[in-house]
Design a protein around this nucleic acid. Sequence first.
DNA 1: CCCCAGTCCTGCGGGC
DNA 2: TGCCCGCAGGACTGGG
Length: 288
Amino acid sequence: MPELPEVETMRRGILTIVGATVVRAQRTPCAKRPIEIKPRIDRLNKKVAGQKIKAVERLGKRVVVRVESDDRLVFEPRMTGLVLIDDPPTCEHLRFSLELKNCPHKKLMFWDRRGLGKVTLFSPVEYQAKLDSGTLGPDALDVSLDEFCQRFASTKREIKVALLDQSTIAGVGNLYASEILHQAKVDPRSRCDRLSKSQWSKIFKWMVEILEMAIKYEGSTLSDGTYRNALNRSGGYQDKHLVYDRAGQTCPTCRTTKIKRMVQAQRATFFCPNCQKKTTKRNSKARA
DNA sequence: CCCCAGTCCTGCGGGC
DNA sequence: TGCCCGCAGGACTGGG
């Protein structure tokens, strides 16, 4: 499931399209079922055809292709989407393509097995409005500790659930949330408004560290094998997971307790009950 | 406003 | 062995 590191790996994998000219945008004829593309493909095509690609950016878990007019084509891979310039895993789930010229690669493609992904074209005004609407928070790798704390501090939600909310911070998903809280030694059920300053610092520090490390390893490929890096190989970070999908195994950190799986907000959470104990503001201060 | 459950989708694996 | 159902979860919607 693409989270920030996997999407960043996709972005880096398609950087050679910068400077290319878009010939046309089209839904891929062999795609099994249509995905949501906005605006309608003919209108979208009119806006991007003939435009030069100026930049390939990322915002949270989205790949953003910016053209000369500053219109932005935003790809949302969600569960099983891939943004590619090389052969997709199958022909049948290819959903969308941008034909290119003046580029070593002829096409930018959006492949998505489950079809939950989306492709949306935003004008500069629409894009700014989207950012201002508050539905998408700042990127997890582009936020200060102060803003990070500020955005979470007042909510009573459980920290694991809050981390997944893209309107607070964009980029962290289910897998990395478990890993971050394990390294920070925070119980995933802790209420945000009851976490201490030092716990927030640890969560922030490990969030940055884990996301950056996972980018170095080109992301995590899980057992379903969907996610591939730019060279169509598996990512490498799945071997570094300490708790995710390791229920029943001995915790690699304390080596005494078995990792547990539980469900929070209908999502699986993995944690070590020994390493990640609930602390109140009071007793964490007393300890310090 | 804030939060949560429900919804979409396909492929895989557990269980019978 | 083969079939079926439940599960995987990112992001949005509707309702309390």
